[in-house]
Simulated scan of single mutants.
Amino acid sequence: MLTSILIVEDDPLVAIMLEGYLDALGYEIAACCETVAAALAHIDPEQIDAAIVDVHLADGELAGPVVEALRTAGIPFLVTTGGHNVVSDPRFDGAAMLTKPFSLADLEAGLARLAGATAD
């Protein structure tokens, strides 16, 4: 069961929206990180059950290292990106995606898919 979620998002408004959505859905927010370095410091399967990761972070930083670390740790994740952004980095191949802007229902469905995948 997914309960504790790591948010990796550099846009404060999107991060606040995600926090509100997750709270409304009954999830605990483990941490909200704006950079790859901060996110990597929070990747611990004992502390988080899943993550929501924006592809493009501040200063042109790609979240590829975060996705790699999540996969290595066996932590499921959703990737978010703007609809106009093309993700050409192979580290994101096969990742569950949410295209911004997304709704509460979209996030709920994405997290349900993650929960279903971890139950297998």
Rank of each mutant, 00 (worst) to 15 (best):
L107P: 01
H84F: 13
A63Y: 03
P65S: 08
A50M: 09
P12S: 13
L111I: 10
L57R: 02
G60T: 05
L70A: 10
V86A: 11
H42F: 06
L57C: 06
E68C: 12
I29K: 10
A119P: 02
F92W: 01
T118R: 15
M1P: 11
E61G: 07
L25A: 06
M97S: 00
V14D: 04
L57F: 08
G64N: 06
A30Y: 03
T35I: 10
H42C: 15
I5Y: 02
E9W: 06
L2P: 09
P90R: 11
G64A: 15
L62G: 00
I16M: 15
D54P: 05
G83E: 10
A69D: 05
V36K: 03
M17G: 12
V67I: 15
S103M: 09
E108C: 10
L78P: 00
A73T: 07
T99Y: 11
V66M: 05
E61N: 09
E68W: 00
Y27I: 04
L57S: 06
T72H: 14
E61L: 04
L57E: 05
A115K: 10
T118A: 15
A51T: 09
D44Y: 09
Y21T: 00
S88H: 02
K100S: 05
L62E: 15
E34G: 12
Q47S: 13
L111Y: 04
C32P: 00
A50F: 07
L6M: 09
L13E: 12
V86N: 04
D49F: 06
G94I: 04
T72S: 13
D106W: 02
E19K: 14
P65C: 08
V36A: 06
V53Y: 10
L98R: 03
Y21F: 15
T99I: 14
V66I: 11
S88E: 14
A69H: 08
G110H: 08
L40K: 10
G116A: 15
L107F: 11
L22P: 02
C32I: 10
D93C: 08
A39G: 09
V67C: 14
H42M: 15
V66L: 01
S88T: 14
A112H: 12
L18H: 03
G26H: 09
I75E: 06
G64I: 01
P90Q: 11
P101N: 11
V87S: 06
H84R: 11
E19R: 14
A50L: 04
L25Y: 08
D93K: 08
N85S: 14
N85C: 07
V8G: 03
